[in-house]
């Protein structure tokens, strides 16, 4: 089975700088791979191993995708090759544009792939829709909330975890699936995996992305802060705990 797992890189939110007008800057932020995208990559690696198949990884975005450490990071998780679409327009891509870019990339790079995997939601927008939009654009069956994937002769069986129901479906291939965050525990790559990752092929796809922006962004600001008192007590002896209780009794007027 030839599998593509899609992942997105995002700036580390703990590195954001906030100015007094709630303006945000990511300029100093480290970039990272979305936490829940790793579940898609791991699911792909396990399926590739089980079927004697091949896992590829794919991301679309702006210049931050040039980052060599992140490329090695993703390739150290069981994938054989990486495909990238790097375009300045994709810096502000909305979920629809993202899905259009991914669809174009898959059509040109791996038109014969059997399965596309996405994570539950990206670490920035968390729109939880790119997989579904991608499936529709490619004209393939697409399902979210997939908690188990079992390959069968030319088809796959999936289990979905919905709010109060589990659903088992049989699907023809190719298909697009969005996996849950607890479908697996993503591996922690070893030193050897990371060294090997540096030797794996990276294809930067020469694609023009034509999708129009469908969401007009008016502003992106830090949330209004909730003022907190930040009274700190150091130590965990019974006296210190009693001191804490004293503060609370005063605070709650009891």
């Amino acid at each position: 089975m030839k599998i593509i797992a899609c992942y997105k890189i995002v700036p580390e939110e703990q590195d954001f700088l906030v100015d007094p007008d709630r303006g945000l800057s990511y300029a100093r932020a480290e970039w990272k791979i979305g936490q829940y995208d790793l579940n898609a990559v791991e699911a792909g690696a396990q399926l590739a191993a089980a079927t004697g198949g091949q896992l590829l990884v794919l991301s679309v975005g702006a210049a931050e995708l040039e980052n060599g450490k992140l490329r090695k990071g993703i390739l150290s998780r069981g994938a054989e090759a990486l495909g990238l679409v790097i375009a300045p327009e994709l810096k502000d891509a909305d979920p629809h544009q993202t899905a259009c870019a991914l669809a174009a990339a898959i059509r040109s790079w791996q038109p014969d792939c059997d399965l596309v995997l996405c994570g539950e939601g990206s670490a920035d927008v968390y729109g939880q829709q790119v997989g579904q939009q991608l499936g529709e654009l490619l004209g393939l069956p697409a399902f979210n909330a997939v908690s188990r994937i079992t390959p069968q002769d030319g088809r796959i069986r999936i289990e979905r975890r919905l709010e109060a129901e589990a659903e088992v479906l049989d699907l023809p291939l190719p298909a697009v699936l969005t996996v849950t965050t607890d479908i697996n525990r993503p591996r922690i790559p070893g030193m050897k995996d990371i060294l090997n990752a540096g030797k794996k092929p990276v294809a930067v796809l020469p694609l023009e992305i034509k999708a129009e922006q469908t969401l007009e962004v008016i502003s992106t600001l830090a949330p209004k802060p909730t003022p907190r008192q930040c009274v700190l007590i150091e130590g965990d002896s019974a006296d210190k705990v009693a001191e804490l209780v004293g503060h609370l009794q005063k605070e709650l007027g009891r």
């Binding site: 939110e13 954001f16 927008v125 969401l215 007009e216 962004v217 502003s219 600001l221």
Partner: peptide
Amino acid sequence: MFGGAAVRAQKAT
């Protein structure tokens, strides 16, 4: 956005 580290105001076209 960003898990709550940002609030984005937006309109659909």
